[in-house]
Design a protein around this nucleic acid. Structure first.
Lengths: 343, 343
DNA sequence: CAAAAAACTTTACGCGAGTTAATATTTTTT
DNA sequence: AAAAAATATTAACTCGCGTAAAGTTTTTTG
């Protein structure tokens, strides 16, 4: 019985005994029709299970209910989590979310944007690749489509930015490490992938200076998205040559830190904040695995709830404002130290 | 100059000096028009950058170039990797891939399928939730849309299945562990999430029997997708009460194993295949993090290349066959033991 | 209860292509 | 060079729905 017997709205309308334009209105906004007719439509809907054709809708409507979500690298569990959160909330807000990943490549990022355009989204949440982004393509895209940047800021791109405060990340970790032991050296990639890495480097320097200490950097070679590998190889090289400049290693992000932990384990070094441990290691981002490393990884975590709330709220506002804000606002949220065993 | 100045195909056709139906033919199949006109169109395309409206196309075409990919849980890096692979190859094959995740929930899986329907995909690669799937909804979906199941088999659902051979996984790990030390006990969830877990349990029993040994199961409580947590808590409980029945723990999958490793570390147990280690731990799936656990995790890995090749090939064949195969074939690929430090 | 307001129906056109049939133009073959 | 075959053009219709105008019915209001 609950079969979709109807090929179009016309037929469904006939079965309801209601005109097509009214049905159309109903699907656009159920509360825009009289209670009694609404009931009739919904009764028929129960019985027949008709749903309007999405392509035909989008062809004519100026504003769709589509929202695009673009992340730089979906295999990274951090982005997996963020995407999950955002997607869920979009649905709750009555939007359809479509997820795209650049898989770390400029070409695919551009293609995602192209495909997104043809979906005519009401708005887009975009976490760009960063250093590997085609900034001109992003700018062109944001010119056409209401876009809120998140996680990684690129100046003047998008109508707003929502992200975490890198300074809050690094100052917390640095202060904590200084207060609880030897001063931390900063472990990072020589050529950082994204704006956040650069900001974290700066913040580390600033925090150290503020504490009256000299920053010490450990920069490792490597490129691409296999950050654990880069951290692992870099740390191994250092441990084999001499050692870290101090017994406390603050990694730019958790994925590097996971690699460092692996290298330390291989070299038989005990990592942790207890007596008898050779090294302390900490990271940033509170990676989903950080809880299950050995030892569990002390990190500084994003306020994911605040970020996704704010990101979507900003986007929905932007959509209501017809895709333009007067000023490009940046919403920055503080991070939270997550105290575990490694430091 | 390379601006999309045209609002529709009509205008673009005018600028080319070619009729609209010919342009339409070109976009449907570039080789269906004369070489000379094709050149003219492509020249104009270079200059003006016009692209046909995707909604208008899909409204009339029977077969789109859309391919849907549905995974049960995208935050799981294993699925992130698979999705990345599949997506990339679809693009190379001239299809547009759209990715959906059920995020572990039946409701969202059903919704993904509904949305997918309205995209009128040429075909779909579906890794279902398994135990939590709404089998009737899946069946209805597969009735309408050409679908190849992957990773997790559900009998009679979909036109074909492509996945790894669970028996190959477990027999390899079991044989190896038995040959190299004490016999393994099998660590798993009491209520497995998906068909693979059940098949692995069976295969463990079979492999042990074949070796003339008695299977020993360690079944832990827990539900949901936070497998590391489940493994961690389960192992902790066991270690605090007594210990594992044998000094070798074979986990149903790597994510459980990661949790077990964390618990062992917390209890001060050395894990590894060397003298002086209290326990050996191994898993299945070759999780992306398995290389970077401490110690690195011995596992059995999927042949991702074979799987994604076969999955897409099967799907493309299915599309060519108008969405129906005579028989429902199951393509099963053997796994590869990945020998690391933990066992 | 009559008048105003709100909701609905009918009619008709538009969106941007796909598609087809008849006709016209090239290109290829002989 | 003429005939045959291959392409292209023109015109018209389709798809499923959004939307606006004009008229009709129902509901609200003073």
């Amino acid at each position: 019985m609950a079969q979709s017997k109807f090929r179009n709205m016309e037929e469904f309308a006939a079965a309801c005994g209601i005109s097509r334009p009214t049905i159309s209105k109903y699907f656009h906004d159920a509360s825009s029709v009289r209670q009694s007719t609404r009931k009739r439509i919904e009764a028929a809907l129960e019985e027949y299970d008709y749903r309007p054709n999405i392509f035909a809708i989008n062809q004519n409507r100026r504003k769709t209910k589509n929202v695009g979500i673009v992340v730089p690298y979906l295999s990274d569990p951090v982005y997996g989590e963020i995407a999950r959160n955002l997607e869920r909330r979009c649905i709750e807000a009555g939007f359809r979310a479509t997820l795209f990943s650049a898989h770390g490549e400029q070409e695919l990022e551009n293609e995602a944007l192209e495909r997104l355009k043809s979906l005519r989204p009401a708005g887009v949440l975009l976490a760009p690749l960063g250093r590997h982004s085609d900034v001109k393509a992003l700018a062109d895209f944001c010119d056409e489509v209401p876009t809120v940047l998140f996680d990684r800021n690129i100046p003047a791109i998008g109508q707003a930015f929502v992200g975490s405060d890198n300074e809050s990340f690094v100052s917390q970790s640095t202060k904590y490490l200084v207060a609880s032991g030897e001063q931390p050296c900063f472990f990072e990639m020589k050529q950082p992938l994204n704006p956040n890495s650069i900001a974290r480097r700066r913040s580390y320097k600033k925090s150290m200076k503020a504490l009256g200490l000299d920053p010490v950097y450990v920069q490792v070679e490597g490129s691409g998205w296999n950050l654990e590998e880069i951290g692992y190889k870099g740390a191994l090289k250092i441990l084999e040559a001499q050692s870290f400049p101090t017994n406390t290693v603050l990694c730019s992000n958790d994925r590097l830190a996971i690699g460092v932990l692996a290298a330390c384990h291989e070299k038989g070094l005990r990592v942790g904040r207890y007596p008898g441990c050779a090294l302390r290691v900490a990271g940033h981002d509170d990676h989903p695995s950080a809880r299950y490393t050995c030892p569990s990884l002390t990190s500084v975590g994003h306020d994911y709830d605040a970020l996704s709330n704010s990101g979507l709220e900003t986007l929905f506002n932007l959509i209501e404002e017809d895709g333009r804000f007067e000023n490009r606002n940046e919403f920055i949220y503080p991070a939270k130290l997550v105290h575990r065993e490694s430091a």
